[in-house]
Design a protein around this nucleic acid. Structure first.
Lengths: 241, 241
DNA sequence: TAGTGGTCTAGACCACGCA
DNA sequence: GCGTGGTCTAGACCACTAG
């Protein structure tokens, strides 16, 4: 319970003061999964109208701190998960800490390499390339969408072999290829195409886009080009030099 | 003027119907720079309360279609810029590079350390901390905004010494302190506060936010906490493991 | 059925931009 | 001073969740 009351003459809007107060309290007692008190309770506590509380909570939602669930309440969300960009990608292992991670395969195609894909895989234009589209989730909450591109000639049976689980583990097992990340290019964009709906997020909130190249550690040939879109409100990338 | 009236029993919220109607009209008569009719006029036209119109316009703002200007009205914004334009001008910022282009100092303050700042600098709450706000540009085009936080006790004269150029070079020169970046946390958000106008960008395009900690290489004490916001349409971060 | 959030109305007063 | 958006209140009713 806060000691300081709302100051109606401070120049700062009441809803804004309440938003900051709630934000502080959420971060101090980082109770992810908990529910905020009901709106009418908060209204009584701060001595304001319920609509004013709603306006404050709107701010928290915009920040990605909480989510409203109709009929249930307003739930505190997990803080963005740190995702370390290292040499070896271990998506599943990194994310599994909290809950049950899952990878869903959305598309499996063979396409002719063009432009950036051909260039990054160091193959001729029109060379057949495997394209996997995967969606990763924790506890049914999607957090990233990955387009994987791999030269078909190098992994001739991968199209049939890959049906679930970790792609890199499968490659390691079936082809004795150890992958190492050599470069990542990170930027932020608004979600394109179906990405927003697949990630179950707003079209107007940004995603982190990471282009990465993985090479075969044995011969340093590029084997995979991956284009990952992270929900930026759920993920932050940790980079250690 | 629309022919179809609002249907109060369609299941779709009234504000949502109004938002779609307005969106259609804006896009048909794409009159960027024009102002929407005043809220009370729209309310009258749709036979709803002014608050309901406001809720509808909130949606359009969220989409980046219009902006409210206090005392003036609600203005239709330009169509979003095509992404291909952004791609051309996008360049890459090395995580380690200090940045040599023009740096403008926007603010120099001493503030009491609180929360994340205190924690990351490993100082007590309320310890005096220097806060520099700088803007970096290339060819007059701003591309990033940095909040630097440094313990005042460690750099007692820095407030007066720093007037232009590279902060890290100055620290090295005056205090014989070599800084090393030990951690970076990267995420993407929509610009907050004045960031959009300082970076001369749309409020609806994302920025890359990098939190980084620099330590003194001699004793491994944290000396600077920097919070950088990059224009994501102009910058991508290259990360080499 | 009780409790929660979702929407809409009605009216008041304030703060800002501009002529 | 007028017209604009910004905020806050008060109350009503609906829709969803869960016991």
């Amino acid at each position: 319970m806060s000691l300081l009351a709302i100051n109606r003459y401070s120049g700062e809007a009441v809803y804004s003061q309440i938003a900051h107060r709630l934000q502080d309290e959420i971060q101090k007692s980082h109770t992810a999964g908990n529910y905020l008190p009901a709106e009418h309770v908060l209204a009584e506590r701060f001595n304001v109208n319920r609509h004013t509380v709603r306006r404050a909570v709107d701010e928290l939602i915009q920040c990605g701190l909480v989510e409203r669930i109709h009929g249930k309440g307003t739930r505190v969300l997990d803080a963005p998960v740190d995702y370390t960009l290292g040499q070896v990608t271990r998506f599943t292992e990194q994310m599994e800490a909290g809950g049950s991670a899952a990878t869903k395969i959305l598309r499996k195609l063979v396409i002719p390499a063009r432009g950036g894909v051909a260039q990054r895989l160091a193959v001729q234009e029109e060379t057949p390339v495997i394209w996997f589209e995967t969606l990763r989730s924790v506890d049914e909450h999607p957090y990233c969408l990955i387009s994987h591109f791999l030269p078909l000639a190098r992994f001739p049976e991968l199209m049939n072999q890959f049906s679930s689980g970790s792609l890199h583990a499968l490659i390691n097992q079936c082809y004795q290829v150890q992958l190492r990340r050599v470069e990542s290019l990170v930027t932020a964009i608004l979600p394109q195409g179906d990405d927003a709906s697949l990630l179950n997020m707003s079209q107007h909130q940004p995603v982190l886009r990471v282009k990465s190249i993985n090479i075969d550690t044995k011969n340093n040939n590029p084997c995979e080009y991956a284009l990952t879109r992270f929900r930026a409100d759920r993920i932050q990338l940790r980079i250690n030099p």
